[in-house]
């Protein structure tokens, strides 16, 4: 399998603070890769650096062998990476339908907007019911679905999600993770950032553990699930 996304020696930060240092990882075509770690480990920073929302100090990002580091976020999205950010970042005074349709920005995704919308509604039937409702009035789970749907409207090859389980009831998280598995079966590669380590490892094929801004551990998720260090650090056993 070839690498769809390859990070090589990424360094980025805020002001004098360096949040990630020498982060290298790859996501292969068709995979679900989890990026796990505790609060402040640099997970969100890594995602923001990939999609051009935060300038890189060092390192390169390649999508399908083509260098995308240094591009602005608009160009990264057009290149095939969609980002579901932490806190969802919807447009609260606009309707669900408007939020979804805004996700289709590139010429190609706009041309096929109706078709993609049907796929999103098939995946999240609830959004079809709520299409006229203002996004700010949705429940947390519905907002997360809208944010994922909006990202899918860009017809991405790689979907990146930042803490999709944050603040949601366990039953809602289960249904959203089932949706992610379905999206992956449809051919979308996924890079998932999560603090909910157990769920992330169960869903993903491979995982990277980020600690203090560097990759501390990587491997098949099945193996990490039984790793003694992971168990101690994240499952409290």
């Amino acid at each position: 399998m070839s690498a769809l996304l390859r990070l090589d020696g990424l360094e980025a930060g805020y002001g004098d603070m360096t949040a990630i240092r020498g982060v290298s990882l790859e996501v292969r075509q068709g995979e679900i890769v989890a990026l796990i770690g505790s609060n402040g480990a640099g997970k969100t920073t890594t995602l923001r650096a990939i999609c051009g929302l935060l300038p890189l100090r060092r390192g390169t990002v390649e999508l399908d062998g083509r260098r995308i580091s240094g591009l602005r976020s608009a160009a990264v999205v057009a290149g095939g990476i969609a980002h579901v950010p932490e806190g969802r970042q919807l447009f609260p005074t606009m309707t669900v339908l408007e939020n979804l349709e805004l996700g289709a920005r590139s010429t190609e995704s706009r041309r096929r907007r109706g078709e993609t919308l049907e796929r999103v509604f098939a995946l999240f039937p609830l959004l079809a019911e709520r299409r006229g409702q203002l996004a700010g009035t949705l429940s947390g789970g519905e907002q997360q679905m809208t944010a994922i749907g909006r990202a899918l409207m860009a017809r991405p090859r790689l979907l990146m999600l930042d803490e999709p389980s944050l603040g949601l009831a366990p039953v809602t998280v289960s249904s959203i993770f089932a949706n992610l598995a379905a999206i992956n079966r449809d051919g979308v590669t996924i890079l998932l950032v999560e603090q909910n380590v157990l769920r992330a490892l169960r869903l993903s094929h491979r995982a990277y553990v980020l600690e203090n801004g560097t990759i501390a551990l990587e491997g098949a998720s099945q193996r990490l699930l039984v790793d003694e260090g992971i168990k101690r650090a994240y499952f409290g056993r």
Binding site: R72, A74, V77, F91, M94
Partner: peptide, 16 residues
């Protein structure tokens, strides 16, 4: 309107 509603959100979805 989206940019007025949530500028960061607009940036994230690839708005210029």
């Amino acid at each position: 309107r989206a940019a007025a509603d949530n500028t960061y959100g607009a940036l994230v979805i690839g708005t210029d």
